[in-house]
């Protein structure tokens, strides 16, 4: 079955344990993870992406990835802060994953231009990250995670630092891009209205345990 499946998943951070019994997000849809600050939402994302040791299964489509290193999992990441590479211009930031994959320079530039246009940033390709707004930077971060066409993308409160107007424009862009790229997205947020608007299914996390709402 295509999508992201997490089963019997357990992450231990000191005495705090995060558990996910069963979570499935089909291809082309957005699943939400809701919970209070400190409930372990970000821990789930980091462990699924492979940055924290964990037990249990993580499936990306038909491939089990929990035993793979982060760079081999084909799972994109977007954080609350855009975390753009400060030494690269917007075009090179977006094309970073393509460069890692060994895509040629001309092809990379062409694809990056397309994604810049798609995210409403055409004409800014040579700008440096410090020269753009937070909302624009978050668009670049989204494009960077999606251009590589990984089957899964994890988003850790990517809209929470933005103002209402920027948020709503990014919501629609995000939904369009998910539909276009057929990616399975897991979105962490503490904003119920955001989750309601963007997600087809929402899970709730309390005291580390993730349960279906």
């Amino acid at each position: 079955m295509e999508g992201l499946r997490i089963r019997g998943f357990r992450v231990r951070r000191g005495s705090f344990v995060v558990e996910v019994d069963d979570l499935f997000i089909p291809k082309g849809s957005v699943g939400g993870l809701k919970g209070r600050s400190g409930s372990g939402k970000s821990t789930v994302l980091e462990a699924v992406a492979g940055f924290l040791p964990s037990q249990g299964e993580v499936w990306v489509g038909e491939t089990r990835v929990d035993n793979l290193r982060p760079e081999k999992r084909c799972i994109g990441l977007v954080f609350q802060k855009p975390s753009l590479f400060p030494h690269l211009n917007l075009e090179d930031n977006i094309a970073f994953g393509l460069r890692v994959k060994g895509v040629g320079k001309i092809e990379r530039r062409k694809l990056a231009e397309k994604w810049l246009e798609r995210t409403g940033l055409s004409g800014l390709s040579k700008r440096m990250p410090r020269e753009i707004s937070e909302g624009q930077a978050q668009r670049v971060a989204l494009a960077r995670a999606l251009i590589v066409q990984f089957p899964v993308v994890l988003l850790d409160e990517p809209f929470s630092a933005l103002d209402e107007e920027t948020k709503s424009s990014l919501y629609s862009l995000f939904l369009e891009l998910v539909a276009e790229t057929k990616v399975s997205a897991l979105l962490v947020s503490h904003d119920p209205s955001e989750l309601e608007f963007l997600c087809s299914k929402v899970w709730f996390q309390e005291n580390g345990r993730v349960t279906s709402l």
Binding site: G50, R69, P70, E71, G76, L77, K81, F85, P86, R144
Partner: peptide, 27 residues
């Protein structure tokens, strides 16, 4: 060199040397 930027680079497929040459060394 922000840890989140490094995580993003790894999630995009950069191994340890890719991380070093493309993210850490230029910075």
């Amino acid at each position: 060199i922000h840890p989140e930027a490094e995580k993003v680079a790894s999630s995009l497929g950069a191994g340890k040397w890719g991380l070093f040459f493309w993210v850490q060394a230029p910075l």
